[in-house]
Structures are given as C-alpha cells and as structure tokens.
Design a protein around this nucleic acid. Sequence first.
DNA 1: GCATCTGCCCAAAGCGCTTTGATCGGTAGT
DNA 2: ACTACCGATCAAAGCGCTTTGGGCAGATGC
Lengths: 340, 340
Amino acid sequence: MNLKQLAELLGLSQTTVSRALNGYPEVNRATRERVLKAAEETGYRPNAAAQRLATGRAGSIGLVMPAAPDYYADIHFAEFLSGLGEEAARRDFHFVLMPKKPGEEEDALRWLVASGSVDGIYLAYMQANDPRITLMQSLRIPYLVHGRSIGIEGDYPYLDVDNEAAFRDATNLLLELGHRRIGLLNGPGGVDFTIRRKAGVEAALAAKGLALEAEQMRHTAMTDEFGFRGMKELLEQPAPPTAVLCASTVLALGAIRAVNQAGLRLGRDISLIAHDDVLPLLKPEDFSVPLTTTRSSLRAAGVRIGQRLIDRIKGLETGPEQELWKAELIVRNSTGAAPR
Amino acid sequence: MNLKQLAELLGLSQTTVSRALNGYPEVNRATRERVLKAAEETGYRPNAAAQRLATGRAGSIGLVMPAAPDYYADIHFAEFLSGLGEEAARRDFHFVLMPKKPGEEEDALRWLVASGSVDGIYLAYMQANDPRITLMQSLRIPYLVHGRSIGIEGDYPYLDVDNEAAFRDATNLLLELGHRRIGLLNGPGGVDFTIRRKAGVEAALAAKGLALEAEQMRHTAMTDEFGFRGMKELLEQPAPPTAVLCASTVLALGAIRAVNQAGLRLGRDISLIAHDDVLPLLKPEDFSVPLTTTRSSLRAAGVRIGQRLIDRIKGLETGPEQELWKAELIVRNSTGAAPR
DNA sequence: GCATCTGCCCAAAGCGCTTTGATCGGTAGT
DNA sequence: ACTACCGATCAAAGCGCTTTGGGCAGATGC
C-alpha cells in the first residue's frame, strides 16, 4: 500500500492525503479523519526512503561505533547508548550505527553525511586535536560532541564532564589523608578525558610541590584485565604508591584483584578512588570494600545528548552550546589515612 | 555533488556514470576509469535515500533493541552487538537500531519493514510462542532468529545454543559430586532460553528421581543485583541448596557476594556453575574462586548471525537453516563434592 | 453587484538515483 | 553489398513521497 493507492481508494489526491497524514492545517477535519482511519485500516506506512528523498530529512542520528574488539564491546559505550536510545525512542528517532575500525572513522562520517542517511551526528571518544571536529564544522550538519578536544580552536557544541576537576578533587582528598606517592591507572592514551584527568591529578600534586611520576601511571584500555596488570606493575615497584586513582570502576575491578593478590587490605594498606560512570553492573557500594568514587552517570549523559542533538536537528538549539557537568566525589571505605 | 552534476562534468549521461560506478560490464574500460577518478576527486557519494528508493535495497539490517532499563543497558546485548557489528562492518552493512519499550516491538518491526529502511531483521530475546516469528513469516523480508521459540510450529531460520543440554550436563556434574539439593538462578521468566535451561536441569534431576523445587529457583533479569538477592533468598531457606546454577556470570557475580556475606566458602560449602557468555569483563577464571562454567561466546554468535543474515539478504542462504551450538562445560574450582 | 477573501482541494514538479528500451557507428557474416 | 550483430552510450520512465502554485466554490466587504 502506497500513497497513490491510498489516495485512489479514498477518491482524493495524493496531496490531500499526504497533508492530512502530516497534520497540515488546510485539510477539512472530516477529510482528515477519514484519511487517518483508512491509513490505520490498510496499515499504510510511508516509504522511508521516498520520504527522505523528498524532505531531505532522515529521522535518524548517526554514530560511528568503534569496532575494534578492545573498545567496542565496551560496557561504557553500551551504557551510554542505553541513555541515548531511551531519548531517541521518546522522540521517534532511530540510529544508524556504523561500525568502523579506528582510523576509518573519518571516512565513515563523510559517507554517513554525504549519503544523507542521517541528519545529525554524535561524536565520542575524542582525541586531542581531533580532526573529526574540524570535519564536522565543514560539513553542514548538526552534531554534538561527547567530551571535548584539547587543542581545537573555536567553538563547538559539546557535553562533557569536568574530568580535570574531578581528579583534582579526588587527588586532594588523598593528599589530605597524607598520601604522597599517588598512582594513576588512566584510560587510553591520546583520548581527551584521559589527558584532562591526568592534568587534574598533576594540578593537585603541583600545589603541594609534588609531581606525577611516569612509572606511577598507566595508559590502557579500560578493561579489568588491564586494571589487574596495571596495578600489579605499580605494586611491584621499589616504591609502590600508597594510593591509586582509576579512570573507571572496570579498571578498579581488576586493580582490586591485584591488591588482594598482593595481600594488601584496601582502604588501609592502600587507598583507591575510581571514577564511577554508574554502570549498573559495577556498583561501587557493592564492592567488598565499598569504593570512594567520583561519580557522573554515563546513561544520563546519553539522555541529555539525545535531547540536545535532536533539538539541534530540529533547529531548537543553535550556537555552540557547551555544557560541563561536575562529577560528585563520594567517600566510602576504599580510602584511608596513608600508612606510615 | 550529485549524479547529474557528475555526469555533466564528464560529458556523459547519468546512465553511463551510474553503470560505471556500479561495476556493470557494458562500460568501456577507459570511460569507467575516468568516471571513478572524477568521483574520487569530487568526493561524490550517492544519496542513500535515492538509491534505496530506486533499488528497494537498504544496505542495512534492523534490530529493535529493548529500551527498558533492565534489559537494555544489558551487557549481554552489547557483547552480541559487538560481534554483529564486526561482521556488518566487514560486509558494508550498517544497522538501524530502533529502541522500543517491551510490548511495542511488534509495531516497531512492522514499521521498520513497511518503511523499507532495512532489508533484513534480527530477532532476539525470544519468548515462548513468540508472535514476532509469525509476524516475520508473514512479512516478506529476510530475518534470522537468535535463540528459538518453544511452541512455534513450522520451520524458521535460527541460531541457538543448546541451552537444555548445557544445563543438563552441568546438573549431571553436580549430581556426580553428590549434590541433591540444587538451586537455579535463572534468567527472566517466559524467555525461551530460560525455559530450556530449566528443562535441562529438570531432565537431569528426573533421571535420578529428583525434582526441581519451585523455592529453589528464581526468575530474574540477569543483573548482579538480582544475583545477590536471589542467592540470599536461597540461602536463607530452611534447607538451602548445596549447589546453584546461574544463567549468567553476571548473576554469579552477585550470587557470590551473597555466598561470601553468608560466610560460606565457594567450592566447598557450596558449589556454583554459571553459564559463561564470554564477556570480557567477567572472566570466570578471574573470579577469586575460578568458576565452573558452560561456555558459549555471545560475540561469536553475533559474528555468525551477521554472516548468515547478510547471506540471506543476498540470497546466498535460503530455506530455514537451523544451527544449534553446543556449550562447553569447563570445570574449575567453584564446584566440589557435596558437603555432608 | 462586484471584487476580495478564505477554506479546501488538486495537478504537477521535483528529490537523486537505477533501469529499460532505444540509438548508433562499426565490424563480421554471407 | 546487404543484413546481422555487438559494444558503448543515451533519453526517459519510474521509485513514493512532499511541496509549490494554482483553482474553485462559497462567504464577506463595500
């Protein structure tokens, strides 16, 4: 059943039927109801491709998802997607998900935009000086950046968590507890939030005349495996840290395994603060020693980004609106006074 | 840049350019190269909507993803999607992901198909007598079922794990170890794999003249929270089980917390076997007491389903091919002789 | 009574592609 | 020398919608 057939069935023109269906005012009320009823009964659904071709609108937002095994099975991504999906469902949008290996993202974005299959783009896993922002600025299509990109000049719309402040606060807490040798199990190198978190730690340390030693830090993918290995390496050093910051509760999970294996007691022999993305699977309060965390919900970010991106697509949000969320420092039992 | 402009630029007709681009044989070799070169230089990308409208093919596969918080933030889904994404990327397909609340799936499917935005459908989280299969059979579009649906007559193409056999084998292992009171922390009620797993346990027990008591079983979403609560309830009973089967390592995670909290030692005071979907985040060998599991990779299933669904779309696979994977029983330390 | 609205509806153009059915110069067959 | 055929190209139709630019009554204003 297509529009033409439906129009014939009703003895109306395609124009009128189309207008009735799309809520244009210049249709007689009785006619509209007749059309709506017939559409319902015949199960008519407009052909999406034709609609797109005619309107230029796709009703969907595009995201290039990292397809490298390490990144993408990523629970963080899934949790974010969950929030975004919730909002998209509410506003009748869907996604076009394009899985691509790292390095192919730019081409994929170009394709996605040029082919007109989406009318908005979500950008994540930003790197420093990320070329994708410049790319998007040159393409005329609404987009929203999750995170930021150090080194990019000019304004662009984003939503980010203040990672620097979060890790500065966390480090300050550790300093107040008397810790001086502080380690950092950070996210992947080159990624913006990784850089800012490191900067936060360094800022807090610098204020006390301390520095973050290179051997006290690890840049890895945020899996428990790397958390385990990273912590193990830190502990095997001649002067191991007395406190460690983790970029994710997932890293913390592995890190704590290493702590236990080394026979250390969390919160007494060694302190740990993790960044908590509020993953339902890994609640810091459920760890055998509840974790001190900096908290910011990834799912909530997904919802908010959905709102804003769709608003931008509909022209409700314009300009490079920038939004920076504060993470909340929540003290539990994994932090304690530095051992002497 | 569109086809018309490109054709004008080259002094050719749209027909020839289109054919050159799409690899039709009746184009002069020199002409084809000229076209390809120009397309490259001008950054020409065919408009996807127009292409779809003209061909009727969408180059994408559709999945309705559960948008209810419980299900969807679901790490199992993410892990599966990861595999599917890998294969889709390889074969140049993308997804149209339509987030929907439970109960709205059927409408969403209808819409997805009728609107022509996808040319194949992936079906998951099958229930007993799932109406979606009947629906898909009536819609003329390739589809593939992940799992099966008890009670549906007739053939339909699927990929499933032999859940019944897996849980039968696991139960037999426990019986051999002398366990007689066996509990089951199962997945959500009504879901096909849940039903089959239960059936597997019951079959093994029945062979010994035993039965699965209702109070020894829980049907819940597969989160660690429910694992914790479920195990806690089982242990608080007058005659708690000496061994428990878990439908997922995620459930096991919570369950083990409850075991520890009760002061019991895993593998000695109580035995546990979990089904392992090979989630990178939850490796059974990394648990403080390594877990005995029935293993079947969800990611591998994703890859395979991608292959088969795309094959079906391209007409390479026809008929209701049915594929049943065996899960592997791997014995580690969480199982031991029944305490007397 | 004539011009002007207004409310409702329609025919047709156009979105950017693929594909069908020619066309046309040139080579081969007899 | 005439037909047949072939390789390479093109014009135009069509996919199913939206939207522009009327048109045609009947109501309204003066």
